[in-house]
């Protein structure tokens, strides 16, 4: 594990977000004549759905069934919605290379267009959470402190106080939130990927989710003001530091004091 948390330019998160949004938006605009997917309302264009179906049959059907009905081992996608597809494929978790305790993200191997098409196809199988709109993801007006309280109540138990992630039972783990962009986090809350439970828009309404996004943005971009944060792993890294560096320095001095002079 790296000791120092990865730092980015304060605006990096925003920039990535903007680029992501623009890219997704353009992709949609190109194929979908400017409509963004809504939960139950707007339906993607027929061509996009058809393109998605093609891609789905090639890449996903072997596990999830020819029409998303699922197989004995792998879940049905009917009713999982576009948000789930976007989350799984943007993070590269799907298509999974090997099933295990936990599917790990990797560099994605589908383009934004392709993912949007597959998402549109899966959304057409049954109503489910949609990909959040730019307006939903705009957390600028949210309350940072409230986001903190919500984060501490709902997220921190698994993802750690600094969003560094943490252990779950039987080898599973909650991933770090440090390099994840807002859309992915929103989709995760809404769709409950893998072992993560679902935080629905009814029990954790969009304005609360925005506040949480704002807090996570704060965790990602505002560094700990006290100095080197030692990986934000709590007292353990402090203990390791004091034994290795702290006592190391002091003992070096004792050896100097005790050494004979020539």
């Amino acid at each position: 594990m790296t000791r120092a948390p990865r730092r980015r330019h304060p605006f990096a998160g925003v920039a990535v977000l903007l680029v992501g949004l623009v890219a997704t938006g353009t992709a949609f605009a190109a194929v979908n004549a400017g409509t963004s997917a809504q939960a139950s309302g707007a339906v993607a264009s027929q061509t996009q759905v058809e393109a998605g179906r093609q891609l789905y049959v090639e890449g996903c059907a072997s596990c999830h069934g020819i029409a998303g009905e699922g197989t004995e081992e792998y879940p049905s996608l009917i009713g999982t919605g576009a948000a789930a597809v976007d989350f799984q494929m943007q993070t590269g978790k799907m298509p999974a290379t090997s099933p295990g305790v936990q599917v790990i993200g990797k560099p994605r191997n589908y383009s934004d267009d392709e993912i949007a098409a597959i998402a549109a196809y899966v959304a057409s199988l049954g109503a489910g959470p949609a990909i959040p709109t730019a307006a939903e993801l705009d957390f600028a007006g949210a309350d940072l402190s409230e986001g903190g309280t919500l984060f501490r109540t709902n997220c921190m138990q698994c993802h750690n106080f600094a969003g560094k992630g943490g252990a779950l039972s039987d080898g599973a783990f909650a991933p770090s939130l440090m390099d994840v962009d807002s859309k992915i986090i929103w989709e995760a809350m809404l769709t409950g990927p893998q072992n993560m439970p679902i935080f629905s828009n009814e029990t954790l309404p969009p304005e609360s989710k925005q506040a949480i996004l704002k807090w996570i943005d704060h965790l990602q971009n505002d560094k700990d003001p006290g100095g080197l944060a030692l990986g934000s792993m709590g007292p353990v890294s402090e203990g390791v530091f004091v034994w290795i560096v702290g006592l190391g320095l002091v003992l070096a001095v004792t050896v100097w004091i005790g050494a004979k002079v020539r």
């Binding site: 109540t153 921190m156 138990q157 709590g234 353990v236 203990g239």
Partner: peptide
């Protein structure tokens, strides 16, 4: 509320 990685200071570890 609780955080993942809830640990005491090292000497209580």
């Amino acid at each position: 509320q609780v955080t993942a990685d809830s640990q005491p200071d090292w000497y209580i570890g």
